[in-house]
C-alpha cells in the first residue's frame, strides 16, 4: 500500500447499523422470522396452494387448542404424559448420578463397566418398547420404565465422563495440602462434574420426551402421544399439529428450565454470563 499513487477510500459505517444493539437485532429478526413463517403458512393454506389437511393452518390449530382446553379434553392427556416423564426422569437421576460418580471415581469399576455401558448407550432403546409393554403392560408403568431407561444411560455416561475429565491439576492441589480422598471427591470432583451432570440431564430430558411419545404411540389409551395418534387416524390435522406443538413447547420449556438450573448452580462459569 505504501507509496501507491492513489488512496483507497474507506467509507465510514452507516449510522443506522449502530442504532440497534446486537441483542435487539436478534430479537427483532427473530420476531420477524417467527411471525413471517406463521403468516406465510396461513396465507398459502387459505389461498389453496396445498390441501389444508396436510399441515392445517395456525388459525385452525389455535381454534382446536381453544376448544379442547375449554372442554377439558386436552389436560388429562398432557398431565399423564408429564407425570410419566417426571417419575421416570427423577428416578433415573436419583440412580444414574450416583452410579456415574461411582464408576468414574474408581478406576477398576470404570474398566469393568466401560464396554458394557458403551454398548447399552449405543442401543436404540426404542427397540425395547415391545418387551417393556410385554412385561409391564400398557399402563403408566411401562412408560415410566421407558422414560427411565432412556434417561438413565445418558445421565450415567455423561456423569462418569465428567468425573474422568476432572483436572489432574486440581486433584493435585488437595493432595499437596494433605486433604483426604473423600475431601477431594467432595470439593473437586463433584463441582467439576456438575456441568457434565447437567448436560446429561439435558440430553436425558430430550430423550425422555421421545420415550413418552414413542411408548404412547404404541400402546396407550391416554396421554399426549395417544392424542396425536388418535386424531391422526381421524385425519384431524389441526389436533395432530396441536399435539406436536405442545410437545415442542414442552421440549423448549424443559430445555430452558435446565438452563435456569445451570445458571443457578454454576455462577462460577464465565461462559454462562455471555
Amino acid at each position: 500500500m505504501t507509496g501507491g499513487p492513489a488512496l483507497v477510500a474507506r467509507p465510514a459505517a452507516g449510522a443506522p447499523a449502530r442504532l440497534r444493539g446486537a441483542l435487539g437485532e436478534r430479537v427483532f429478526y427473530g420476531l420477524i422470522g417467527f411471525v413471517g413463517v406463521l403468516l406465510i403458512w396461513e396465507a398459502t393454506a387459505q389461498l389453496g396452494l396445498y390441501r389444508k389437511s396436510l399441515l392445517s393452518t395456525p388459525s385452525a390449530i389455535w381454534q382446536a387448542a381453544a376448544t379442547d382446553i375449554a372442554n377439558g379434553e386436552l389436560w388429562p392427556h398432557v398431565s399423564l404424559s408429564l407425570t410419566e416423564f417426571a417419575i421416570g426422569f427423577v428416578l433415573s437421576l436419583v440412580l444414574g448420578v450416583p452410579l456415574g460418580l461411582l464408576i468414574g471415581w474408581f478406576r477398576r469399576v470404570d474398566y469393568l463397566f466401560s464396554g458394557l455401558l458403551a454398548g447399552l448407550n449405543a442401543m436404540p432403546h426404542v427397540a425395547l418398547i415391545p418387551l417393556i409393554i410385554l412385561v409391564a403392560g400398557i399402563g403408566m408403568e411401562s412408560k415410566v420404565i421407558v422414560v427411565f431407561l432412556w434417561t438413565f444411560f445418558a445421565v450415567v455416561v455423561t456423569t462418569f465422563n465428567g468425573v474422568q475429565t476432572t483436572a489432574r491439576k486440581h486433584l493435585e492441589i488437595t493432595r499437596s495440602f494433605g486433604g483426604s480422598q473423600w475431601l477431594a471427591f467432595r470439593t473437586v470432583v463433584l463441582p467439576s462434574t456438575l456441568p457434565f451432570i447437567i448436560s446429561g440431564v439435558r440430553i436425558g430430558a430430550g430423550r425422555a420426551l421421545v420415550g413418552v411419545v414413542s411408548a404412547e404411540f404404541l400402546a396407550a389409551n391416554r396421554g399426549l402421544g395417544f392424542y396425536i395418534s388418535l386424531y391422526g387416524t381421524f385425519l384431524d390435522t389441526a389436533r395432530v399439529m396441536l399435539g406436536i406443538v405442545i410437545f415442542g413447547i414442552l421440549g423448549v420449556v424443559i430445555g430452558e428450565l435446565v438452563r435456569v438450573v445451570e445458571r443457578r448452580f454454576e455462577v462460577w462459569r464465565p461462559d454462562l454470563h455471555h
Binding site: 486440581h170 499437596s176 463441582p191 467439576s192 462460577w268
Partner: peptide, 9 residues
C-alpha cells in the same frame, strides 16, 4: 502452583 490452580467453582 503454576497458573490456573485456583478452583474456578
Amino acid at each position: 502452583f503454576q497458573d490456573a490452580s485456583l478452583f474456578p467453582w
